[in-house]
Design a protein around this nucleic acid. Structure first.
Lengths: 123, 123
DNA sequence: ATACAATGTAGAGTAAACTCTATGTCAAGA
DNA sequence: TCTTGACATAGAGTTTACTCTACATTGTAT
């Protein structure tokens, strides 16, 4: 299946402007039809979901760009891409650990507040 | 103990400019000495660490500002502050869950790469 | 007394990632 | 044929959170 930018925008929850911006940055590069309209494919869709995943895990556009470039170069870059993902995996792991630690401290603080409120009878 | 902005900057790993910016935004409001220099206290230090924690868990400055304002108003806002932290705790929890899911998908992808590289003998 | 390093303020500049505006093209329905 | 409405490009504007510049004071070591 092929989709217009409007359809694709609805499917991916990315604004039309954002999609054009991503294309400008060489992240998502749909085909064009005879009248120069963008034609997004199902492959573009899967790729877009992956881009969103990288973004949601804190990878900056510049680095996604680098990954996209390797991807466009084909199978010869498989090693390099795997390396990128492995490194990113490690940073994700550290992010999670850090957040869990923050969570524990936050819980301490909330407990402290509970006690304070009890003590000063502000319940 | 009291600290100059330079000392405080080194202790907190926040740039001098950032500290002045935070003061401008009413986040950290140190005392001043007779010649108008900032005097940061140990209380400011603990508070600054907490601010950093909120930031590192994705709370925007605007919201930290709101929290700081309540804090400055004293004990009568304990309830409200605890409420804020409880809500934030929930969002942190969801962040962690989302990251863990992303991690699982990333592992799948890395495995896929490993197989592809094996298959195409690019090792 | 003087140089110089740290600090003060006000305001401009930066980077990332969008987001919007102006203007133009084109296919399809009334 | 005329008018929408979706799409096109180029470039300007926005938001967040700093970060830096220019210039004036002040504290301290020589």
């Amino acid at each position: 299946m092929e989709y217009s930018i409007g359809e694709f925008s609805r499917m991916t929850n990315l604004g039309i402007h954002t999609l054009r911006y991503y294309e400008h940055e060489n992240l998502i590069t749909p085909k064009r039809n005879s009248s120069n309209r963008r034609c997004y494919s199902d492959k573009d869709l899967a790729w877009t979901y992956f881009i969103k995943r990288l973004k949601n895990t804190g990878m900056p556009i510049k680095e996604i760009q680098r990954y996209a470039k390797l991807r466009a170069e084909g199978d010869l870059t498989l090693n390099e891409r795997m390396e990128m993902l492995t490194v990113h995996r490690e940073s994700l792991n550290e992010q999670i650990k850090a957040l869990q630690e923050h969570m524990a401290k936050l819980d301490d603080k909330i407990d402290f507040y509970r006690q304070e409120i009890e003590r000063t009878s502000l319940k």
